[in-house]
Design a protein around this nucleic acid. Structure first.
Lengths: 196, 196
DNA sequence: AATGAAAGCGGACCACGGTCCGTTTTGTCC
DNA sequence: GGACAAAACGGACCGTGGTCCGCTTTCATT
């Protein structure tokens, strides 16, 4: 008799071979990505490297975008960890305003270093790994409420994060704007929004 | 003797057949786009419709993205015209703060209605039709300076426009956020930045 | 009008993302 | 452990964006 708690429709579990392959594929993809750079990694190459058929890749990850999002999630969750439990001022322990600034700076730099992967994981179809993007929003929203900012905090959080987006940043870099300048302008924006 | 004013290295002019083809291609592309929707228009189809070879498309527009940007530019320049010389509050004649709000609202709605085209014209390669994007930035910057806002105006303008980006907006729409709410939150953001 | 070189043209060709479906593996029930 | 259905697998296949290169058109010069 299968142990089934009276919990509602849980997603069906994963078969053994499927789990094994998922790991193999992710490992192969990660390896290829930081060996060749994300642009030069084709789905066929990942399939070959992982020793599976192409169909398997697509069943598991739906699209190239989805696969890259899965690869990206590893670094993202490291960042999330350092926000949730790392040293201040990014992690807990510093006053909210400083954490807010630290988070923006950290996010900006991370977006730049992971730029290629983020863009590969963010299709024009717009289905970026939901969780990854919304973690930053949720956290920012939390900090804003600690600072007693009034208003539509969820949307305000989005508005503050939007100018740090890799696409926006790269556009500016193409106009010879430095990261330091972007950072300073963001600090100014935050100051205005939070009200000192 | 060729008439050549003492003007420095002008870009070489366009040959007659080239100009003819450019028009034909743009017309064909526009027609197909609003007949089938931008997603369903392939480069082969445009070439067939225009009665030219595929190579010609790519020489003229470099990529699918480039072609779509060219198609988009028509609507964009209509919008630019109504900002520069249309009726207030979007056009000149209204006080700067009202023009600022009107511009945001108008830009938001335009981004939504032209969403598919904008995304098709904005590759992950990030080379969106330079002029189109930067017109809004320049104008916004101008309005901010009229309002005596201090600081790094070019970057502030970018930061205000970023949350209106179609990708950001669609993300929010997927979370059941209405356009009116986005608009209200943007107004609030502007109020904070400009300082009433 | 003839001429020659540079610019433009076109469609065969390639690699890639994504789908499809006949075959193989897994896990359950007897 | 045998039998059976469900799930997963793999690679042939397709349409698309983008390149390449031998041929044609344009246009300045005479």
């Amino acid at each position: 008799m299968p142990i089934s708690l009276p919990m509602a429709d849980a997603p069906p579990p994963e078969r053994a071979d499927a789990a094994r392959n998922r790991e193999t594929i992710l490992a192969a993809a990660s390896r290829l990505v930081d060996e060749l750079g994300v642009e030069r990694v084709s789905m066929d190459a990942v399939a070959r490297e992982a020793g599976v058929g192409k169909g398997t890749l697509f069943r598991r990850f739906h699209s190239r975008e989805g696969l890259m999002a899965a690869v990206l999630d590893r670094s993202e969750s490291a960042w999330q960890a350092s926000v949730l439990s790392g040293p201040p001022p990014l992690g807990p322990g510093a006053p909210p305003y400083e954490r807010l600034l630290a988070m923006g700076h950290s996010r900006l730099r991370l977006n730049v270093t992971h730029g290629a992967l983020i863009k590969a994981a963010t299709g024009s179809h717009g289905a970026r790994s939901r969780a990854a993007a919304s973690f930053a929003i949720m956290h920012l929203r939390h900090l804003l409420s600690e600072l007693h900012v009034e208003g539509d905090l969820p949307l305000l959080a989005v508005a503050l994060l939007a100018p740090l987006d890799i696409v926006v940043v790269e556009q500016q870099q193409a106009d010879d704007v430095t990261l330091d300048r972007i950072e300073a302008a963001w600090d100014d924006l935050v100051r205005r929004v939070v009200g000192h």
